[in-house]
Write a protein that binds this DNA or RNA. Structure first.
Ligand SMILES: [Mn+2]
Ligand SMILES: [Mn+2]
Ligand SMILES: [Mn+2]
Ligand SMILES: [Mn+2]
Lengths: 219, 219
DNA sequence: ATTATTATTTAGACAAATCTAAATAATTAA
DNA sequence: TTAATTATTTAGATTTGTCTAAATAATAAT
């Protein structure tokens, strides 16, 4: 499959929205890619032609085996570049997604594998997302839950499920990063906000909206 | 100026062919970019509109001050990525041009400057070409001549003026790289070939065609 | 100074990726 | 189970970058 940059972005977005094997709707994909449903329908026809998706009108989109393989390669490149930018060029985690969005389209297996090696074959990216290996295999991360559903008291932050600059900047301001250890002090039933304590920091209260996007596991 | 990838490639090619201030012809540009003269004419109109080139029909193309600035930024990114690939990812010099041809289009000054810093702000790329600084200033390399015109006996290789895989692979085979010291043993008038001696190597004879593309200065 | 050759431009077409507006299918509510 | 709403597709345009074939300009040769 020789895909254009636009087609690669579609394949990656479909992979993301499928989350396993869900059917992806035209509207959801249009929203994710910040484009119009009519454009998605057009592209769906092309991607079907290229055999990277299964698609019948009005019945939604899923990746073929070939499409999934392609998606995993793109995701691998994206996350490796994010690692590079953070680890080697000292970017902070809210800056790297946008740049990786472009770097991911440089299709060279040799480059990708050399980069991975250079970074020590990392298993997770700066947001805690797993990095597929050269064969597309993802090492399943240890079990984790979102902070709003955690029941253990003492937790460690393992991932963030929203890459938006605004959330990441908020977490920076509160000194919450991957690996941060925290203790749940209280749940407030009224708005489902959560009071937490990080060592050497004043306690702080986190909205449900934020807590949903912070992944944790018991320390 | 917000230029597309295609437009950036044109601007860089024009910069290369201008070599200072020569007027660039439609045909020369078409040949350099492996496209057709008619396409060049079309693009020339667009680039003129965007004020990156001066162009009047039948009179050839030159970069404006703005265009030159843009070209230098692209060249800077290209050569920094080449350095990265060679220095950090152990690519060899004949492999990097093609990859840099893509990486150069990621337009982020922050990324570019961080990359430069990470590499120790190198002044030349793996082919001996100078790297413009963040302001587009090129540190003039020390005076050099092509090997076929050198008159000193003992020389050091400072650059290669043909990036083709075939020439670079040839030089690899003969253990000629940047910094290689060599001695001119003889000039053969018949075909202008040159016999040279590199320490710990058998003498070898270099065709005029190759010698023209090897830049040297007295050791 | 014509003529031939070469360089460049124009005319008209096409593929990719997108859009708006309108039509149609699917789903939900009354 | 009709009617209303929402989702999706189609029709028709637009922009970008390219092409071929034909026309025109510039240059070189006779
Ligand atoms: Mn992308
Ligand atoms: Mn990420
Ligand atoms: Mn390029
Ligand atoms: Mn180079």
């Amino acid at each position: 499959m020789n895909l254009s940059v636009a087609e690669e972005n579609y394949v990656k977005a479909i992979y993301k929205l499928q989350e396993g094997d869900n059917v992806v709707s035209t509207n959801a994909l249009a929203y994710e890619l910040d484009t119009k449903p009519a454009s998605v329908t057009d592209m769906a026809k092309k991607l079907k032609e290229k055999q990277v998706i299964d698609y019948e009108k009005y019945k939604g989109i899923t990746l073929t085996a070939e499409g999934r393989k392609t998606a995993l390669q793109i995701v691998r490149r994206h996350r490796l570049w994010e690692c590079f930018l953070v680890e080697k060029l000292s970017f902070s985690w809210e800056e790297v997604h946008e740049l990786a969005e472009e770097l991911e389209h440089v299709r060279s297996e040799k480059l990708t594998n050399r980069l991975s090696e250079y970074l020590g074959n990392p298993l997770i990216d700066p947001h805690g997302d797993p990095i597929p290996d050269a064969n597309g295999k993802i090492t399943k991360p240890r079990p984790q839950t979102s902070l709003d559903q955690a029941n253990a008291k003492r937790l460690v932050v393992t991932a963030v499920t929203d890459q938006s600059v605004s959330l990441l900047a908020f977490l920076n301001a509160k000194s919450i990063k991957l690996g941060t250890q925290l203790e749940i002090i209280a749940h407030y039933e009224y708005d489902n906000s959560i009071e937490i304590k990080i060592k050497n920091q004043p306690t702080l209260t986190i909205s449900e909206q934020v807590a949903k996007h912070i992944m944790v596991r018991p320390v």
